[in-house]
Design a protein around this nucleic acid. Sequence first.
DNA 1: GCCGTTTTCGGCCCGACTGTTTTCAGTCG
Length: 590
Amino acid sequence: MSLNHDLSDLFKTFAAVMEIKGESVFKAIAFTKVARVLNDMTFDIRTAVEQGTLDGIEGIGKSSRAIIEEFVRTGKSRDFEEVAATVPKGLIPMLDIPGLGPKTIALLWRERNITSVEELTKAIADGRLAGLKGVGDKKIEQISQGISLREQAGKRSGIGEAQLVAHAFLARIRALPGVAQADLAGSLRRRKETIGDLDIVASVTNLQAMESISQAFTRLDGVARVLGQGLTKASILTERNLQIDLRIVPHNHFGAAIQYFTGSKEHNVKLRGLALAKGLTLNEWGLYKAKEYEQAKKETGQPPELEPCASKTEADIYRALGLEYIEPELREDRGEIEAAAEGKLPVLITRADIRGDLHTHTTASDGVNTIAEMAEAAKRLGYKFLAITDHSKSQVVANGLTADRLLNHVEAIHKAAVNIEGIRLLAGCEVDILADGSLDFDESILKELDFVVASPHVALRQDREKATARIVRAIESRYVNVIGHPTGRLINQREGLPLDFSRIFAVAAATGTALEINSGYPRLDLTDTVARAAVEAGCVLSINTDAHSAEQLDGIFYGIQVARRAWVSPKDVINCMTTAQLDKFIKRKR
DNA sequence: GCCGTTTTCGGCCCGACTGTTTTCAGTCG
């Protein structure tokens, strides 16, 4: 898929160059969107070009299509190279410095011949920025801090880490005097797998309290630095360099504010475009009649003196725009607004739909709880079935089971099942998919199992062709029910296998093999966009915890969130089947 | 550059905060 990413990067850079050159911002926005669409794509762009299916994709117009086609054919774009040559390469990374934007970068380049972050650092030290119009001492200090911030920060936090910090701060904010309600917004509320910064919205019933809350927030425990603080808004950095933005609004505007702050930006842009087309205008204060809003009295930090069409709840806003309510996980501008307009949003899966976990470990391999303990924990979660799937022999570090040990373990599981009522125990195994796609046990062993998860653990740097053939071969085994964490990726740590998903989906759908959304953080594998494409291609999914302890069974929550972002309904997931349906699902393949 | 149930031309989301300004530009989300 690297071609998609290469092209996405090209459009991103193209947009950056246009910003610095001061061309129409709309051109840059358009190319930024093309970059996003390419990045989200789960099919190979080369195939789309060859099959001529590039036409129908929203956001990719005539010019972009020409660039894509040329790049697929020749590996480059003359248009891009021509434009890029007019701007020094070193200016592009300067855009990542917080507080420094395209206008100032262009100014530094033209007036001081600064063409890289390194030169900028030196120029600041030498005092060469003095006398630049619009750049004072404070601005220079801000840029200087921005440079060091960029070096430390870099990566987005994984949802697992961000969540802990978010809940700690949310609790502290809720405890501040005058706060009526406070909730998470931003990408964490949308349950994105990585989080850039945390957004929290608080409401007040007494407007006088707003500023004192804003101030108190910047003095909370765990605040390392204050980035900005106004009447209704404040930003801080935590000790771990995570940025938190707090927005404070009057209580009857809470819905509008949390809608606005939840984003995504792209979702909101489209929503406001829709509002405009209906003669309305949408902002963080509410949804208003556009003409009235224009004439209304407005003051910074205060709602306009005007009755909104909607503002109290998010549901009110979506309804007033003629849309079904859109769950936060869907708000990415991936077709949800169009679907909501037609009343065709999916019924999203919830925790209550899950009837069992199909990928778990015990003390037999590298888990910490026994069969009975895992079964009791599953029962407490209300589950009707549980597959015990300890590691196979190649996973030596994980105490993987040899054939003999596995057969004994199967017997032990069946024996344990006799003593445990109300839950069906499946004796399974997480069998390694070896580098060539063969399985760690042969069929004489596999046929003794009730359930098989096959997963790749090693050789995760294979090329696309090899990796795809490997997983396809595993799917074709009649005993394999689920492909566990199909790519092996780890958030912020490991890319995983570069699979050709359209081939994987075709074989998985044809054979009745489920693809896993592994709920273990930082796996979360498959990802949201891939899982969605899988379902659209006719595949079924399995959401499992890969729990190595009874406690970890609770982690199913992460996988469900990925599934919700993937537009997944209960009917798409084998964990939502009744036990009888699950038996049928397993039998059908054998 | 992209797009079209008010448009094939003329729009394109919107407000808060900061800094350098005496009325606004740049940046951010």
